[in-house]
Design a binder for these strands. Sequence first.
DNA 1: CGTCACTGTAAGCCATAACTTACCGTAAGT
DNA 2: ACTTACGGTAAGTTATGGCTTACAGTGACG
Lengths: 107, 107
Amino acid sequence: MAYSDALTALADPTRRSVFERLAGGDRSVGEIAAELPVSRPAVSQHLRVLKEAGLIGERQVGTRRYYSLRRDGLVELRDYVEGFWEEALASFKRTAERGEEDETSDG
Amino acid sequence: MAYSDALTALADPTRRSVFERLAGGDRSVGEIAAELPVSRPAVSQHLRVLKEAGLIGERQVGTRRYYSLRRDGLVELRDYVEGFWEEALASFKRTAERGEEDETSDG
DNA sequence: CGTCACTGTAAGCCATAACTTACCGTAAGT
DNA sequence: ACTTACGGTAAGTTATGGCTTACAGTGACG
């Protein structure tokens, strides 16, 4: 399941920072590293994880590599949350229907 | 930021299993533990993390504690992904408008 | 009050992963 | 060809966190 990798990838704060910077447009590794308090190799490693999670893509220009958000990856994550949202609503509804009884009425 | 805690919480597979089981309705710690290959204390710890992330709530009945999804927590996570989705679309659009850079290697 | 059922917490172990420095390959400019 | 710029990879260190067992606390019930 890809949403699993996506969630794992976005769990780390630093990696999330890297990811969120790509929302503003394509960025090279050096550009991202310059704005973060970690080394360039660290950024490289984060980018690798994000890429393996399908969240970003890369485009090479000379020796530079521009990373960008990948639409499909976002869709998967979005669908997971949305799907869960639907289930949650159903659950809330069931709970509400059972009334405010705070006792164990389960058989 | 709460979505941060939510993402961290949902990163772990076991914890995600715990969380997803709550989508089917309220559950006690013992019930959840019985369905998972980890000990009850482990489940307890996962529930604590999920609760601190605002994703679930608890309701005590006797010595039992029923955990349930928390609507607000879901909303926050959903909004984060949705907001990102919007930004991503804008980014995609910008990239498209800039046209394809033909220096891109085939990859 | 004594016992049982249910659960949270503490302590310790160990796998994971995030970070660093060092190194290597590659592309462009002179 | 040499130099510079850019970035991926390897190796090693260290912090994080998920798991287990042992223990403590609380409510229901005879």
